[in-house]
Amino acid sequence: MAYPVWMDVDTGTDDALAILLAHSLEEIEIVGLSAVSGNTELHHSFRNTRAICALLGGGYPVYAGAPKPLFREPFRAPLVHGSNGLGDVELPLPQKETVHEEAAWDALYQEAKKQGGRLRVIATGPLTNLATAFAKYPDLPGLIHTLLIMGGCVSEGNVTPSAEFNIYADPEAAEAVFLSGPPIVLCPLDVTESLYLTPDDMRRMRDDGGEAAGYAYDILQKPWSFHRSYGHPGAQMHDSCPVLYLVHPELFTGKEAGVYVETKGRLTYGKTVTDLYSDRKFDRKNALVVLEAKTEECIEILIRGIQSI
């Protein structure tokens, strides 16, 4: 039986790929998606998520969540994701579309109750929606089987020397989630940066794929040009990491750790602080931190999955 999966996204070029990948995998049954402000403004991430779902046949309900972080001012990534969040690719919405008015946290809670403890949540944006949901529904963490997060870093950050984008974009929300969370699998930069599509991979994906693969190719050109500009060999597939982990944990290695988020630091604001290598440990191990991937196998699954759509 497939895992029921909720995706909380800030689509987002690599979010788009993660949704396509999740759709393509028979082990996953997407039961709902929610959009959050992050890479781009909420109206873009909400629209982009619906447009990706429309490309996939329009069967998935998409809900809008938080328009801004809990406390801080919004922080976005237009250099990576373009002005519309989708690499400046225009993806059409269907003529007739059911727009869901329900708030992300309410819809997530209803689905979690319906799934009776089986729901997996994949979060690939700032954790504002989840923090809001946990604040409103204290029993929600207990209803989630696993929360898989793309975010944070054990070693270096990518937006500051200490912090990764998704966590930096709403550190207070992330801290709330790590404090109250269900079982967490954290996919930090340490592993997600090892998952990327080279120019050859991208062409191969497009040439042997369908319409979705063609759009995926177009969407990736903006992040690829950004990642290339600082010497990275491909377009980084951060957000596909938790999707791949859910279905193929055997392709990854990780370690249980205490993970908390710095919300008061001057230089370290938004840092995911782990006790993996320190003598002093946190009182509780609240996350499995994924550290390494068998990258070739992961990339093949990603490419084949997107080609199969």
């Binding site: 950050g157 710095e262 008061k264 230089l267």
Partner: peptide, 18 residues
């Protein structure tokens, strides 16, 4: 880092020259 809940006393090295 001289402030912070968890990170006081951290030596923050800009390894990537961000």
């Amino acid at each position: 880092e001289t402030a912070g809940k968890y990170c006081q006393g951290a030596t923050v090295a800009d390894v990537r020259d961000i």
